[in-house]
């Protein structure tokens, strides 16, 4: 029996105006993959993520989520946007942010149900943020804030977690903590993460794609040990050379 992959992209082309941002992208993301999307700014990484989420309209090519149209599977996708997209001064508590992750807010009445609160607390525990449940979001560090956004994405019980540069503007320790959390979550979730912190993300990811309009695919399973022993200051060229050795 043929298994249906969480994400299947076939012959995808995309352009905002005249020039193509993505050309002939083909990609299969399998169940429990931890895939990282690498590449230069303007290479099309975020565009690809927004196409998977259905934020950008599909014009040419096809994207299927669990074999279905994107719109039908949106509740199964958790999304963590870039850190910089959120208003840092917003007066909102951690638990309120987490409960925003609910699919189609059922109870359109003021206040929150007890079971929702309990679920939010449980998820905050998973990302080690339970003690900050009533803290104002602006009083958290960048890394803590990002873990709250991961908790929000988990609130809808997704099967796929998409993250757009979750560690931008976060120090190396915060970065490691976030990826350790993701590694733990990967036991039950398929994860796709865009990252610029390549020296960190490659220690945790099982697969990588490099996108600069076109896509090259790398299976990192044989390189895991090499990446784990790398220092924090490995340059991008060295890494790409290493990736070249494991290109599939």
């Amino acid at each position: 029996m043929q298994t249906i992959n969480p994400i299947s992209i076939q012959q995808l082309f995309f352009k905002y105006e005249k020039e193509f941002v993505l050309k002939d992208i083909n990609l299969e993301v399998k169940k429990n993959d931890f895939l990282t999307i690498l590449g230069p700014n303007g290479g099309g990484k975020s565009t690809l993520l927004k196409l998977i989420l259905g934020i950008n309209p599909l014009v040419q090519g096809d994207i299927q989520i669990f074999g279905n149209k994107i719109a039908d599977e949106i509740p199964n996708i958790g999304y963590v946007p870039q850190n910089t997209n959120v208003n840092l001064n917003f007066p909102i508590s951690v638990i309120e942010v987490v409960m925003m992750g609910q699919n189609n807010i059922r109870k359109r009445f003021f206040g929150y149900k007890k079971d929702e609160k309990n679920k939010a607390l449980e998820i905050l525990g998973k990302v080690n943020m339970r003690e900050f449940v009533n803290t104002k979001i602006s009083n958290l560090s960048g890394g803590q804030r990002q873990r709250v956004l991961i908790a929000r994405a988990l609130f809808g019980n997704p099967k796929i977690l998409l993250l757009d540069e979750p560690t931008s503007n976060i120090d190396i320790n915060g970065c490691e903590q976030i990826y350790k959390t993701l590694e733990k979550l990967n036991e039950n979730l398929t994860i796709v993460v865009i990252s610029h912190d390549i020296s960190v993300v490659l220690k945790y990811a099982s697969k990588a794609v490099y996108i600069n309009k076109n896509l090259t695919y790398h299976d990192l399973s044989k390189m895991k040990d090499a990446f784990k022993n790398m220092g924090a200051h490995v340059c991008e060229i060295e890494l790409l050379e290493m990736l070249g050795k494991c290109r599939c």
Binding site: L53, G54, I55, I74, I77, Y79, P81, N85, V86, N87, F90, I92, V97, M100, G101, Q102, N103, N104, I105, R152, G156
Partner: peptide
């Protein structure tokens, strides 16, 4: 108000 792109994704 907090994150309109995310709210849109959640069906609001």
């Amino acid at each position: 108000s907090y994150d309109s792109e995310y709210a849109n994704l959640r069906g609001i």
